[in-house]
């Protein structure tokens, strides 16, 4: 519940404050958000499985974000930023889908 409240608070603050995204961070923010979403879905699934561990969640969350941003950064440096970020989004999307399927199985038994 606290976690959901945290999410809501974050969204509201982000919408209200509307900060200027620094130009350096700008290309990595969407990928980082997707990676974090992946981590959150994984965490939700783990919680439904009864094996949720906050430490693992924190580490996976942060490492997901960092690695995703790093991949995009590397891709930009190599000149394949667009393709690589597409690839990252695809992979993360697949993972989110499989996690969502597991969650669905838990919640709806189907």
């Amino acid at each position: 519940m606290i976690a959901v409240l945290g999410l809501v608070v974050g969204v509201v603050v982000g919408l209200l404050v509307r900060p200027e995204v620094p130009a350096v961070v700008e290309p990595y923010l969407p990928i980082a958000v997707v990676a974090a979403l992946d981590a959150v879905f994984g965490g939700l699934r783990a919680m439904l499985d009864g094996i949720f561990d906050d430490k693992v969640f924190v580490v996976s969350f942060l490492s997901n974000v960092v690695v995703a941003a790093l991949i995009v950064f590397l891709g930009d440096k190599l000149g394949v930023g667009a393709q690589l970020s597409t690839g990252v989004v695809v992979v993360l999307g697949i993972r989110i889908f499989s996690n969502a399927a597991a969650i669905r199985r838990h919640v709806f038994r189907a």
Binding site: I2, L5, L7, R18, V33, A36, L37
Partner: peptide, 26 residues
Amino acid sequence: PRVSRAQLIVAVLLCGLGFGLAIQVA
């Protein structure tokens, strides 16, 4: 709602996620 360390940490991370999400969407 229970206030536990796990919940608080996850809340902080999710808060960051929501923040980034909102910024990006906006």
